[in-house]
């Protein structure tokens, strides 16, 4: 199962992943957590281009720049593998 772990920034469009960890400073992590991007949460990657990705989290679309997305560790849900 180790290959199923990845950075959120590398997840292709249309994939559903589960958040594992956020590797960021307190301020950034808390901001992400408060918006619903918490470990264990399933999120849908709706768009992914060079600059930013669009996630659907708890029914809300949130855009994150690539820098932030690369700090979020996720795992693919098994039905995609």
């Amino acid at each position: 199962m180790t290959e199923s772990v990845s950075q959120l920034s590398g997840v292709p469009e249309g994939y559903r992943v589960r958040v594992r960890r956020v590797h960021a400073g307190t301020c950034l992590s808390v901001r992400l957590y408060q918006m619903g991007i918490v470990p264990g949460e399933e999120v849908l990657v709706k768009h992914n281009n060079r600059g930013f990705i669009i996630l659907e989290v708890k029914g809300v679309e949130i855009s994150l720049s690539k820098g932030v997305a690369s700090k979020i560790e996720v795992e693919y849900l098994s039905d995609y593998l």
Partner: peptide
């Protein structure tokens, strides 16, 4: 030095 990141909600 790093540019600020973007974290923003996209309402419907």
């Amino acid at each position: 030095r790093e540019s600020p990141e973007l974290i923003m909600e996209l309402p419907m």
